[in-house]
Design a protein around this nucleic acid. Sequence first.
RNA 1: UGGGCCGUCGCCAAGCGGUAAGGCAGCAGGUUUUGAUCCUGCCAUACCUAGGUUCGAAUCCUAGCGGCCCAGCCA
Length: 556
Amino acid sequence: MSKPDVTPPSHFIRQIIRKDLDAGKNSGRVATRFPPEPNGYLHVGHAKSICLNFTLAQEFGGTCNLRFDDTNPEKESQEYIDAIQRDVKWLGFDWNGAVRYASDYFDALYNYAVDLIKQDKAYVDELTADQIREYRGTLKEPGKDSPFRCRSVEENLARFEDMRSGKLEEGKAVLRVKIDMASPNINMRDPVIYRIKKAHHHQTGDKWCIYPMYDYTHCISDALEEITHSICTLEFEDHRPLYDWVLDQLDVPCHPQQIEFARLNLNYTVTSKRKLKLLVDEKYVTGWDDPRMPTIAGMRRRGFTPESIRTFCEMIGVTKSDGVVDVGMLEFALRDDLDKRAPRAMCVLNPLKVTITNWEAGKQQMLTIPSHPKDESLGVREIPFTRELYIDQTDFMENPPKDFKRLVPGEEVRLRGAYVIRCDEVIKDANGNVIELKCSHDENTLGKNPEGRKVKGVIHWVPAQESVPVQVRLYDRLFNNESPDSGDKNFLDFINPNALVVVDNARAEPSLAKATSTIAFQFEREGYFVKDDADSTGGKLVFNRTITLRDTWGKG
RNA sequence: UGGGCCGUCGCCAAGCGGUAAGGCAGCAGGUUUUGAUCCUGCCAUACCUAGGUUCGAAUCCUAGCGGCCCAGCCA
């Protein structure tokens, strides 16, 4: 059995934690959190963060919270909250205690804001959004103070109350923290920490019409949950001084350490919630769980196993250098896992009728075939061998290329798990299309090789009558460009029109009629497939191709 | 001289002053009733560049070069 040789990864975050533990920080406690905003479904990129946070906690005997960063009710919904929890669980992780919400802390956050105002470290600004932007300055020029910056504590308290009570309209005022309008770090130029949004919140209802901003909310939420290591992606590096500043002004239980790592970039893939949402909203795909989507839900429906995703996350490592991982690595982890666990079965995608002329009509021989070539614990399945069979059209050629190892006129081929047959006659229709093959079998080749000759190929087959009709959906990469998302390209231009090819007339071996979506099968010589529960209705059987088998034919 | 971060094989990534791990991909063989799996071998005199320190540098210093991120009342 193969096992991708994942050297015990000793990435920099692990090292930081180990060092902290050795130094006796946080009294030996390790607490992380995964903090998604419920404004979309989780994707592979999130998987990296989930695996990181949860395994770190596991490894050091700590805890990992699941916290919804729900400070922008206009973009969030319960649907996303439910989907995210489902996906985290499916990946195999259990969060510490109850699900948390930043909105659980809205009261505390509000009181801390009042505290900042009282310390004269926050003020209500009534500049317009445009003015605030102008006053902020540019990357190279310092900003300038708002005329509202020097209001008295009393006036600020009163105006903040006006914001809170709904007296002020949206956009009329914001609460800003008083730091330094000339800071070279734009995030420190008096960032806004509260804005007015007269929106219904999925958790707090209509209790609030002011909502705290990320920078202000996140650090305090972390502190209230007594997180020790607050792991986030690189783009928040510039925000760390603000994270620290806020906590330094307030009387909070602790001061977590923010650590940034490079988010996952995958070639041939788009990992941006905004763009994935667009694919869903504009119906380029059937939904967030479309098997072409790089969402956890899509991958699950496609047939990925949680283990393969976790292994992949281990393989790619954790660093601060922001590179692009080859999607081939994900595919490797997938195949490697599926090869070990997938029961084998046969399914003919493009049926071509074969009649075994020296097999008695009506005679059935039940063949017992192992479900896995190396793992007996997966058991066996039975397939009747009959006079009429189907093989795949691509496994027969009249004028084959040099290295063709399948069936050709006058030659032999092994039917997997059954007999060696010889093609004696090719039947064609009026247009010259091959519609049937008359073959003869060698009865001395069941479970043993013929004497005195080598049979070069093995092909798969199903009995004509006893096989079950199935629809098979052949999935491929959603984008046909390595970086659909880079530069000024429009990722929609690179949607692969062949990312889904539906095969309606496939025939599967009888045992597949009892398949469930919880286990993926290997359709021998074709790839890994999983039953699509959502669309297998009313007796119709639908299988999704998770991934093809590695195919090196013609490469060497 | 706006700030922050990053630069080790085609890709990911160890390395933390003692003389370049590993994985993916690729190549060459072997086994095989899946052109799969599995097994074997090959694959960076070289660590962005140039100087310097040192007996010794991918690791330390200096100066360059290249890439990514930041001007939401998004997260």
